[in-house]
Design a protein around this nucleic acid. Sequence first.
DNA 1: CACGAATGAACGAGCATTCATTCTTGCTGA
DNA 2: TCAGCAAGAATGAATGCTCGTTCATTCGTG
Lengths: 224, 224
Amino acid sequence: MVLKGAEELAVPAEAARQARSDARTRQLLEAAARLMERSGSHGVSMQAVADEAGVSVGLIYRYFANKQELVQGVILGVLDDMARLIPAAVAPEADPVRRMVAAFSAYCRVVDDNREAVLLTYRESHTLDEEGRRLIKDLEVRTAQPLTDAIQEALDRGLLMPVDTRILSYDLLLIAHSWSLKHWYFAPRMTFEEFVASQSALMLATAVHPDHRDTYADLLGAPA
Amino acid sequence: MVLKGAEELAVPAEAARQARSDARTRQLLEAAARLMERSGSHGVSMQAVADEAGVSVGLIYRYFANKQELVQGVILGVLDDMARLIPAAVAPEADPVRRMVAAFSAYCRVVDDNREAVLLTYRESHTLDEEGRRLIKDLEVRTAQPLTDAIQEALDRGLLMPVDTRILSYDLLLIAHSWSLKHWYFAPRMTFEEFVASQSALMLATAVHPDHRDTYADLLGAPA
DNA sequence: CACGAATGAACGAGCATTCATTCTTGCTGA
DNA sequence: TCAGCAAGAATGAATGCTCGTTCATTCGTG
């Protein structure tokens, strides 16, 4: 949620107004997100958003200049959530390779919890303007940061084969997204846990240096 | 292009009409595809499609019952093209591992030639009905078939580590798509050739059995 | 000439956006 | 303490525009 911070907490009345305004903004964005994840931004009218939020149409325009701004708020909100959730979900593993796996499965879990939201970002990003798209890219790269960091550290310690960090980390990000993008393909063939385990095993089989394979035998388990 | 076959070639007049009708259908689908790849189906009006094709709005309704049917035609056309192009592009390599690489890079090349069309299928698939979505899934799985076959054969001959064919082939399909989906990320960081080479090397590093690595040293070249 | 192909103005539904009006809230001065 | 009064919050009917779809009419061809 990208909300203006209350700049002057010195004035309590002002702060209270700011808080109520933020709450309304959140309420509207949540209602819009709920609907748009189902039907896409074009399938949802401002009236429908108002109804879902239990307010009148006119009120939306007090908080968003127009529909495009509302849509942008929804998408950036979704991505912002992920940019917060994913770093937070990364287990504080000491070993870099184990942290890679932890970061990847955390990413998958967040994707699984927000499958429709992930789809929404792929479907609707192009409706945003230049500035909006720049923000999206920044946020997405940021969600991959924990993964990138873990890979880089594992590389530095000689635990991995020489791989291109930029490629491996983005491939993993994309594979995590694929649990949402290609749910119709994966879900009938395996459970979520099997998906994460198999993909992790595949990644480690790729990347871990042969000298250190034994250390991670527990993670490399035979693919389902 | 999914066109009704001329059922009765015995009647030449009928065949001629059929041919002209097919040409119109193609003309309209191409015009619609050109516009929708830029602006998505909701951003394109029937009037705009008619203008682009150089015909009147009314005529479209002679060939498509409504807009949704036109959109479906465009998306299925794009996927159908790929389902034809990709198997055709697979080099007739004898060695299964080299065929894997050939299939993957062929897939990437087709994606590169149709970047906007690939984006369109991701953005617009959800607007189709149940039947349309079933067709899409069939076509997409079919595009992965050459890849799947090559992997399976390599596995059978003991050239690969034990991997899950279903997962590896779909990961590769997705990674090829990612040249379109995440073009903004990859393109500033590497050329198309570097992308294909790095991803191929990554795949082979994963999958090729250590006993046979030397055979494919030329493909495993250090990642860019 | 007859029949299918093609036209494009007209229609109506749906939608984003506006704004005159009403309601709430919290402050002020008696 | 509280009546009353701004000012901001909220309402929702009205507006105007876009767009999908229709169909009476015209065109071209075999």
